[in-house]
Amino acid sequence: MHVVLEQIINGLTIGSFYALIALGYSMVYGVLKLINFAHGDFFALGSYMGYTLLVFGTAFLTSHLGLWGGMIAAMVTAAICLALIGILVERIAYRPIYPAGRLPAVVSALGASIILQNLIMVVWGPRYRAYPAALIPNIQMQVWGIHFTLLQLVILTLSFILMGFLYYTIQKTTFGAAVRASALDRDTAALMGIDFNKVIFFIFTLGPALGAMTGVMVGMYYRQISFIMGWNYGLKAFTATILGGIGNLPGAMFGGLILGVLEMMGAAYLSAAWKDVFVFLILILVLIFRPTGLFGEKTAEKV
């Protein structure tokens, strides 16, 4: 039983990564109906930014802010950088293309993804990079016989705080209402005086910022990062988005967490090599029986 719970904790940890990335996909999809392929690369770029800050700024950061403070500072800096990059990408690669329709925007997103990914490769090189080992304390913990690491605890706490923050912003603030309204019906929302540009600004800063923080956390958790990890995590996170019902933010969070747990369970009890196959099979099965995801609404198209 303890082992199962430990697996669930492991699953929730990676699930929270997926969930945080999925939020970025889901927000953009909800409002623009665009699969933002570059989002996975925002995450990867954030991870590399965090890496650079931690490698070159460690001495400075830790001496002024302490170990955990240094890490938070790295995350925040990465988040700010990515928020800027996110809005830049939106302005350059997406905004001019919206009028042309959905598919050209998808290609443009692919193009942006290729650029970001190769930019990372050009700047940091094609090989793996390792997050500084000495920096991250490897403290084992145990509660009621369940083992986990301090880092996991920190990551889970932080992820849930971030998710809670986003959930609150979207569900409870006027601004969140504007985002939700734009997702439901952009034209009507515009008629009601909602500034669509502000909404876009919001989703293209917050999404990449969340992605960047996730990137730093992934770097600390797995130590190794590579320039292609944007694709891998992006794909999983997008799967989570669909699993939860596309455009549905709480759905995306649950989708991510469920996906992480399933993946860990699959790895532990079926086969580590087949775990991703298992994840995709579950996705396909869910969609066969619930064509709009776990939390998506079943609607009869009005004709």
Binding site: A93, G101, A112, I114, I115, M121
Partner: peptide, 21 residues
């Protein structure tokens, strides 16, 4: 060499800007 994929991505974006169909 390393920059060609950057150019490739940029061309994809420019294509969609000027010839979306």
């Amino acid at each position: 060499a390393m920059f060609r994929m950057l150019v490739f991505g940029a061309v994809m974006i420019l294509m969609m800007m000027f010839r979306p169909a």
